[in-house]
Design a protein around this nucleic acid. Structure first.
Lengths: 194, 194
DNA sequence: GTCTATAGAGGGATAGAC
DNA sequence: GTCTATCCCTCTATAGAC
């Protein structure tokens, strides 16, 4: 692996585990086996390195999600949403990604201006518009924007809740399945009741 | 307000918004109108101040939750769980608490040994055992430990998911209600199906 | 592209006057 | 209990030899 990639990889680990302020150039360099000053031959500053890591990760995550979506979009909505939920669990079984993701959410919510994850959230949802259309079609109840919004909110919320669970207790197939089943039945009964 | 309380209050804000490493004694002192050195007359170190803030917050949150539980425990399970969920939303409508809570979850999940929120999670769940018994009684299906575990997991997960939602988009009564309805119907239909 | 040396700033913390 | 002065350390970043 090229040195620049090794640095990014090490930085990925450190930023995820210790946060931006909690990580020093020293930490990153040590893991690669370099002096910290040498990092500046590859990245102009700590912040530039951080942004490079974030950008790559978000791009990668968005790609993997979109890829899953493409493979699932012809299937019934239940299978599609279940498959995407599974993809989330798969993607974030990488602890570094999970930590980075959760930290980014805090940056978004804290009004912390400094090293915002400005490019972050939008990227993930680049195909969301398309996904929404796919879901709405076979379910006329979802034509109502208010109903649709709460449906999607419940879905996203379940996913974020499960990621929180993974963060503290790790992935658990039984729990995953139970959560999905409960969500889907609840969502369906709400749709039919409206 | 006594100076010591003012310091804790300012520290609460800073630690929540900027994190432990991102906060300096300078920041905290400025907000109170003191020089940073004066803080050491009240707290031996930055870490001690941090622990004081965390301890107080967790104690307070646990108290408020327990209080809500006491007021609700005679009611039907649906009302009890819904009331507790509402209490969570209420407690964490304080942005500082929400941020601190989310940061603590990351500390728990990152293996970051330094300033662990060691006293954190257990405190909240000090009355959980009791709550669990209260829920189990009227629902014989829940006697099965596996069923019960997934039921509680779904519940906690929904709450954590909603807190994540609040972090990014703020509290929304419509969403809150929809999420609860969906959860409860899903949970019920799962219980009846088993 | 990696090293040594070093600048320059800011952090946590202590000592001692008032 | 708050201040000024100060210590010591670590951090980011630059300069320049190899």
């Amino acid at each position: 692996m090229a040195t620049k990639e090794q640095i990014k990889d090490s930085a990925f680990y450190c930023f995820a585990h210790y946060g931006y302020e909690g990580t020093t150039m020293q930490d990153i360099a040590s893991a690669v086996g370099l002096k910290k000053q040498s990092l500046y031959a590859h990245f102009g500053s700590k912040e530039e390195l951080y942004r490079a890591v974030m950008k790559e990760q978000y791009r990668q995550i968005a790609l993997e999600l979109y890829d899953a979506y493409i493979n699932l979009k012809e299937k019934p909505v239940e299978e599609l949403l279940k498959g995407l939920f599974m993809k989330y669990a798969e993607i974030f079984s990488d602890r570094r990604r999970l930590l980075l993701w959760k930290r980014a959410a805090i940056h978004l919510g804290s009004g912390d201006t400094k090293h915002l994850s400005s490019d972050a959230w939008p990227v993930e949802y680049s195909f969301m518009e398309e996904l929404h259309k796919t879901i709405r079609e076979p379910h006329p109840t979802l034509e109502d924007p208010a109903v649709f919004q709460t449906f999607i909110a419940s879905y996203q919320l379940m996913i974020q809740g499960y990621l929180e669970w993974m963060l503290v207790k790790g992935h658990d197939n039984e729990i995953w399945k139970a959560v999905w089943t409960s969500f889907w039945r609840g969502a369906m009964s709400c749709l039919c009741a409206n």
